[in-house]
Each structure stands twice: as C-alpha cells, then as structure tokens.
C-alpha cells in the first residue's frame, strides 16, 4: 500500500508538525520510498519468533521511590521560552 496526500495530513497532525501544501507531494514521495525499503522486511516469515525489546535481554532496573536529584527548577526553567512564578506559560487552553 502507498500513502497519499491525505495520509500525510493525518501523520503530520499526529506528529504535531505543520506542513504546507507545497511540501506535501515531496513528503508523499519520500515517505513512500522509505516504506518501499521497509517492505523488504516482509520477505522473511517471522511467525513464532519473539520480538527483541532489549539487545542484552536485560530486565528494567528498579530503585526505591525516593528523591534522588536536587531540585533545579530555576536552572531548568532558565532555558524555557516563557515562564512565570515557576510555571511554564502556554497559550490559553481553557476559556
């Protein structure tokens, strides 16, 4: 199957990336070329093969639920585009 302009619209919305009308044909072409490459995966039957989630088959290490890092709110908010009273500012969401 191959993607068309409306698929590209849908994917761009899911990815929260604005795409202009004149970029769309290029995306259709590029994404389809990449998916053609990816389709080569179907040459192999993988029934009964377990998926590999971690290269070393390690299990997730857990720690106690205790604070382990110092509070660096000011330093971290220093690189934010807009903050006020320790909060991140975004356009109004609720009327």
């Amino acid at each position: 199957m191959s993607l068309d302009r409306s698929d590209v619209d849908k994917i761009a919305h899911l990815a929260r990336i604005r795409i202009s009308d004149d970029e769309k044909d290029r995306y259709v072409q590029d994404l389809n070329n990449i998916l053609d490459l990816v389709e080569q995966m179907n040459a192999v039957d993988t029934d009964g093969i377990s998926p590999m989630a971690h290269p070393l088959r390690m299990v997730q290490r857990l720690r106690h639920d205790e604070p382990s890092e110092p509070n660096r709110r000011e330093r971290f908010q220093g690189v934010a585009p807009a903050t006020e009273d320790g909060l991140y500012l975004v356009p109004k969401v609720i009327e």
């Binding site: 993607l3 994917i11 899911l14 994404l31 998916l35 093969i49 998926p51 590999m52």
Partner: peptide, 28 residues
C-alpha cells in the same frame, strides 16, 4: 521525515505490521 515515518509505523492499526515485525527481525 523520520518523525513522520516513526509516527506512521506506530499509529493505530500499523504497529504489528511494522514495529512488532521489526523487533522480531532484530531477534533473527
């Protein structure tokens, strides 16, 4: 481009055909 491809292969209905398949091939 890569974000778009990644978003597509993880989107509802395509996960098994792409991501799960790739993880199985990774095993092989």
């Amino acid at each position: 481009r890569r974000i778009m491809i990644g978003t597509y292969v993880l989107s509802a209905g395509y996960y098994d055909a792409y991501y799960l398949k790739s993880q199985k091939l990774r095993h092989l």
